[in-house]
Design a binder for these strands. Sequence first.
RNA 1: GGGCGGUUAGCUCAGUGGCAGAGCACCGGCCUUACACGCCGGCUGUCACAGGUUCAAGUCCUGUACCGCCCACCA
Length: 868
Amino acid sequence: MPVVATVPDKPVLEGLEEKWKARWNADAIYRFDRSADRSRVYSIDTPPPTVSGSLHVGHVFSYTHTDLIARFQRMRGRAVFYPMGWDDNGLPTERRVQNYYGVSCDPSLPYDSGLLERVVRANAAGGLPDPGAGKSSSKSGPALAVSRPNFVELCAVLTAEDEKVFEALWRHLGLSVDWALTYATISTDARWVSQRAFLSLVAKDRAYQLEAPTLWDVDFRTAVAQAELEDREMPGAYHRIRFDVRDTGQSVEIETTRPELIPACVALVAHPGDERYRSLLGREAVTPLFKVPVPIRAHPLADPEKGTGVAMICTFGDVTDVTWWRELGLPVRAVIQANGTLRPVSWGAPGWESLDADAARQHYEALVGLSATKARARIVDQLREADVLLGEPRPITHHVKFFEKGDRPLEIVTSRQWFIKSMEVRAQLLERGRELEWIPEHMRSRYENWVNGLAGDWCISRQRFFGVPFPVWYRLREDGTTDYDARLVPSEDRLPIDPSTDVPEGFTAEQRGTPGGFVGDPDVMDTWATSSLSPFIVCGWKRDEALWKQTFPMDLRPQAHDIIRTWLFSTVLRSHLEENVLPWKHAAISGWVLDPDRKKMSKSKGNVVTPMGLLEQHGSDAVRYWAAKGGPGVDTAFDAGQMQVGRRLAIKLLNASKFVLGKTAPEGPLTHVLDRGLVTRLAELVRGATSSFERYDYTAALRDIETFFWWFCDDHIEHVKRRRAGAGEDAASATSACLAALSVMLRLFAPFLPFVTEEIWSWWQSGSVHRSPWPTEAELTRLLGGTADADADRAVRHASEVTAFIRRERSLRKLPFSVPVTSVGLPDALQGDWPRVSDDVLAGNNATQARVSFGAGLSVDFAMPAGS
RNA sequence: GGGCGGUUAGCUCAGUGGCAGAGCACCGGCCUUACACGCCGGCUGUCACAGGUUCAAGUCCUGUACCGCCCACCA
């Protein structure tokens, strides 16, 4: 049957995105097949981007990688489960909503059902601000205090707008997501899963609440987890300070970078083996200024090399202080409060005993209410006046722990928090990490590094508003204090709840906050406590048993390497604790996009190109081409040049396809050796590309496919085009081979260049190329009569060699193609293949009249133009 | 300080024991009937360094240097 193709006269790339993204949506070609058997399903745990930030070129890069795999698996016949999520939960959204609507959250307020409409209407004028501009664009005037449910409503309204923009970009990029599966981390579903899974952990005693010293951000006024820390280099100074040793007339010197914590000092410590201080152990020192007697103790963590070898233990200056405090059984004498300032204390009262309470009061009065930094400057003056500061402070730079989103160093504040027990399952988590297939393999060590370095259980409570609330209330005693042991939890069918407005079973709303009544847990969960459940959210855990069986454990977790310690780790943990299984088979870790200076592209450097602008400038296929060149886990330079190359490739595909489809000669069996060689080599290409893709090595697949395609255009087409223009058996053979090659190459390119391949496919095929079967060796060898044709493959190589030689000679002699070849000399080795390829090779080189002879090597002569 | 990765052409990179490669850039030529948004060709190397294993090393081993990342490091 002759091919009927509708080929445009001048095919172009412009407009393909608009045309095909609409069609794919209308035809639902990426819809997940709910009837597919588990063995046929390929499920992907897509990273939900933070919608209150901006998508940048790094997202385009890594999400393309996932899409390449999704498209390959789909064409291989898998029912691909490929949802998109939006991370709209957490601090970034909270900040953005506060600024945008001029509101602040007050969890003690009752829900106001009319507030949403009023606030949104008041803000209706003017477009949405730039999502990235959150921090600086705060509204003037006092913030309107709203209840937590109202605040969450506003978050939902604003993030819905952001999500539309994100979705439009992903569609334009050609991600083959099933948009019917989209989820959001603050959605009812996600809150249900978070609360249900949390209650499950509590029931299994895998989660607990504890009042303990916790890493604390004084600006956000919330606890933070180990995974959210980062170290920053800060200027600081060593202050050498003299403490008197009680009853001896001796003194001892310490060095500290935080002299403002002297009022919080509870002990001094030295190494047990440090001879210099052995005689002091067991004695008491007296803190300067505040005259508090503190014990001098020994602990192996005290480093004789640091400072004077004696350290001041404060509650709490750093995590080592916490260790010392706990292991030495020391009292708490906390001065830093939640907002980072020094709180008032009663000198002389229990716990604040002083040998000179008046002096302590007087010195401390000047410090109360000051931030740590200001208090430090003040106390240095006091120490100097008291003549206990030895020498001047010695400036140093040191590393200080920060909340990754914070602006001031973390403090350690005692507070009541929820924790998930991760320490006790550390060994099993390491085992899970070994079970997981990492792409690339070496990323596993990042995970092991992190698990081995865990310092404590995972603190999941945050003193914020926008997030999933803890579904817990507490009884109030008759004296009005909270009885944290008398926990009230809702029945499962009420989830999700908000304990700040919902009422526990058996109570009335009036009993909230009253003696004998109840109070809701004020906190929300860490955003990772929800994100870690993404497989549970998308796969229908405890809500859709059929879907769960069909999709979980998932096949692929794609993500970047910087969140191995957070998202990947926490997901493995939750899946292990809840289902006792690894959440996915493979983890594909993408690299970063680097700017030409080899630095990670970041907004602050002002070098981020807007993704939509990029797609519009180069075309989505071209940008995808560049992205596909970056292998898994490989940081890749932003390179507009590669996008240009991708664009040219797409254009070349249009033109080559136009040529192949332009002649509708009858098809016939593959009689000609060059056609048989083409198909043989094609089968080899398919084998290699398939195996590369199966190993998630899409980069190698693309390279091989592309190389083949250019050879097809440059050599094969040039050889056969004249034969194909003729008639008869050999013309039919050429037509058949070219059509087969085109069909195969379009399908091979389809994951990389979904728009241009779909466009060309539509010229002559029905249905979507993205739903067509991935090519197989078998379909090609069938054309050859059952087996690959090694002789033909060799003949093809010889043909290309001769052509390359003639072209080189023509070029070196600067002769146009119109000057015909008069004679060709060939090595004897070619005698066997030559008769079968000579017509095509000679025709392709304007050499049809040339004399051919055999001898030692290659030679060629041209009809020299007159005058040369 | 611990761990991981990298170092190959001017640039970006591939190369998984067997003749050092691709694209870009640069230079030269060509409108040959799909494509001038094209085609053909050319130039370009201390494979970071030092040692070792091997018939054979860019590739495997040991060490060094530098770059990047992860983790730890607040007295």
